[in-house]
C-alpha cells in the first residue's frame, strides 16, 4: 500500500502550486481554476486520511466541499460575466474601482 504521507505530500505540493497561481495570474478565470486546484488538493488529503483512519467522515467532508465548489463555480462565473460586461476585460488588475 502507498503510505498516507505520500498522499499528504502530493496534496501539499499541488495546494502550493494553486496558491502561487492565485498570486501570479491576472486572468480572473485562471485564478478561479487555481482555486479549484487548491480545493482538489485538500480533498485528496481528506480522502487519504479517511482511508487511513478507516471511517467515512472525511469522504463526507469531501462531498460537501464538492457541493460548495459547484455553488461557488456558478456564482463566481456569473460575477466574472457581470464584470466582463462592464469592463470588457477579465484581468483582475482592472477591478480597481474601490482603490483609494
Amino acid at each position: 500500500m502507498v503510505p498516507t504521507s505520500f498522499y499528504l505530500t502530493l496534496s501539499a505540493v499541488v495546494f502550493t502550486i494553486g496558491a502561487i497561481g492565485v498570486m501570479v495570474r491576472r486572468n480572473a478565470i485562471v485564478v478561479f481554476m487555481c482555486i479549484e486546484l487548491m480545493l482538489n488538493a485538500v480533498n485528496l488529503s481528506f480522502v487519504a486520511l479517511s482511508r487511513s483512519t478507516g471511517n467515512l467522515h472525511g469522504q463526507v467532508a469531501v462531498f460537501f466541499v464538492m457541493v460548495v465548489a459547484a455553488a461557488e463555480a456558478a456564482v463566481g462565473l456569473a460575477i466574472i460575466i457581470a464584470f466582463f460586461r462592464s469592463k470588457h476585460s477579465v484581468e483582475t488588475t482592472d477591478a480597481s474601482e474601490l482603490n483609494l
Binding site: 498516507t4 499528504l8 505530500t9 501539499a12 478507516g54
Partner: peptide, 18 residues
C-alpha cells in the same frame, strides 16, 4: 511537509479495507 508528516504520524498506513 515536515509538519504534516510529524502531525499525521498517528494515522496508520491503510491496512484494512473500506
Amino acid at each position: 511537509i515536515p509538519a504534516f508528516n510529524e502531525a499525521f504520524r498517528i494515522f496508520p498506513d491503510p491496512v484494512h479495507e473500506l
